[in-house]
Design a protein around this nucleic acid. Structure first.
Lengths: 228, 228
DNA sequence: ACATAAGGATCGTTGAACAATTCGACAAGG
DNA sequence: CCTTGTCGAATTGTTCAACGATCCTTATGT
């Protein structure tokens, strides 16, 4: 019986998981990800508080949460705004990706088969969505691909960093007017990268990743600089 | 004159730097770093609010800030506690360090001389503090050494990640009963690592770093497991 | 056209209040 | 003796109303 009780401890995390502020943050996070709130838009404490039926204090806690995820920007005495990423931000995000995903590739030698299965799933999902012209979903699957790739590092903190990073990148994706043109080319390249990893050609995969990220960054920066 | 004005922009960050919640967070962060609050200790909203003369709402915002830095742990309806790191946490922190600092070493080829100067400063400061038996300061200087080493990546986001990581590690340092035994051996090794970098022997530096981090992690884990 | 001042809107912070939850103590029952 | 149910104190979660501080806009005067 002691064993059965001991197993319950795995579920302990789920107990603390529901304060109003966190649920509000979840809602706002989704709204930002889906583009309902656009970058640069100001989020009024009063308006949103009234709309969601929570007090200003609770809403402010939710804002604080999303601010630390860099999805919102908090300007003193001026309110919170949906983050606007600069070209420099994009460059920085890709510097981090090269570091984390590059290390993930090098860790692929001693990764579990379950970790590879997760990556394979994401690739398959992207291919399926691409066949069915669901380009928004292709983008989501691509993001999952890179999230699972980064997970090869085996570090929960790097997973968290990666999740935040990809959430930030999603802010930029919404600026792209043509989602297909941006996401489509990377579907076969994800497949390619996966096969290099599974066949153990680590150095080759590392070089492919560098080119991959370089191309993706270039596309994003080009979509940004025109207005400068 | 334009140059003088341009230089002022570096201080711009500090302007927005003054909400009460953030200042409270700064105070608590320092207190935690110096060991005034010990891991596992509960921080009462009422007691601390009264002591600092701020309202509960403001204090709770400060708690949120530190919670996202993983210095405090927030348990629903039970309050906030100074974070207690497990052996698994230590292992995870060192996984991240290997990734970030390892990448930093590889970036050292095209790093500015100013970046190297910052590292050299930290090494010199550690040596000075060691000569004067200020072992707490040696630890602080060692942390600065690694912070500046990570800065070779040239990414503000990785800098931020590294700052949080090192703040978490400081939580563990306070568990060590003999700070000298833990910090002293690494002072000459920092010097060694710096010289490898400055002479361009990157691969060698990478291997030295791996050993370095492996040794440091082992020391910490040993200090942890006895009580298990 | 420009600087200045007034006004309105919004944020930052406080203090109080009440509901919800936790925790320890103590009594009842097996 | 151990377990279980219940109560009450203490603490947190959340809301609300209020006031000063700050920013933005607009009107005013030169």
């Amino acid at each position: 019986m002691d064993n059965a009780v001991a197993e319950l401890e795995h579920d302990r995390d789920r107990l603390g998981r529901s304060s109003t502020a966190e649920r509000v943050a979840d809602i706002l996070r989704d709204r930002i990800a889906e583009g309902f709130f656009t970058p640069g838009q100001r989020l009024s404490e009063e308006a949103i508080g009234a709309a969601l039926g929570v007090s200003r204090n609770t809403l402010r806690e939710a804002f604080r949460l999303l601010g630390h995820e860099r999805l919102l920007e908090h300007r003193l005495n001026r309110g919170v705004f949906v983050r606007v990423l600069s070209a420099e931000d994009v460059a920085d995000l890709y510097r981090v990706r090269r570091v984390i995903e590059g290390a993930a590739v090098r860790h692929s030698r001693d990764a579990s088969s379950a970790a590879f299965a997760a990556i394979r799933d994401a690739v398959a999902e992207a291919e399926r969505a691409a066949r069915e012209d669901r380009w928004q979903d292709v983008g989501t699957a691509n993001i999952r691909f890179h999230q699972n790739l980064a997970a090869l590092n085996g570090s929960s903190r790097l997973d968290e960093t990666m999740r935040q990073l990809l959430a930030e990148l999603r802010l930029v994706f919404h600026v792209m007017d043509n989602p297909r043109a941006f996401h489509e080319p990377f579907v076969p390249r994800n497949r390619e990268l996966l096969e290099l990893l599974e066949s153990g050609r680590v150095e080759e995969a590392g070089r492919a990743l560098e080119v991959y990220l370089g191309d993706a960054e270039k596309l994003l920066v080009q979509a940004y600089t025109p207005r400068a």
